[in-house]
């Protein structure tokens, strides 16, 4: 599966996209806890396949998971 980071998260981690090995029951929370320089989880939102999701959503092997720092559009 693919994991994406954006904006400040990408720069703190030093990468914007990685392939990630899938395992049964894998959740965004488990991946987040393995990132080298995570921001506070409460400040980050999760998207799975371009839709907002929760940190405990089970992931599928072909999912695109994105961690989104605080949005500042408009």
């Amino acid at each position: 599966m693919r994991v994406l980071l954006f904006a400040g998260l990408r720069e703190r981690a030093g990468w914007g996209e990685r392939s990630w090995p899938h395992s049964a029951g894998l959740t965004p929370h488990q991946i987040w806890s393995q990132l080298p320089t995570p921001a506070p989880a409460h400040s980050v939102r999760v998207a799975i396949n371009h839709s907002f999701a929760s940190f405990d959503t089970p992931l599928n092997p072909n999912d695109e998971l994105a961690f989104l720092p605080p949005i500042s559009g408009g």
Partner: peptide, 21 residues
């Protein structure tokens, strides 16, 4: 648009960029 569409602003001042949170 401000809160729920994934856009991020970065301000550039004196050649230094800062992400707006």
């Amino acid at each position: 648009l401000k809160h729920d569409v994934p856009f991020w602003k970065r301000e550039w001042v004196n050649g230094v960029g800062t992400w707006v949170e």
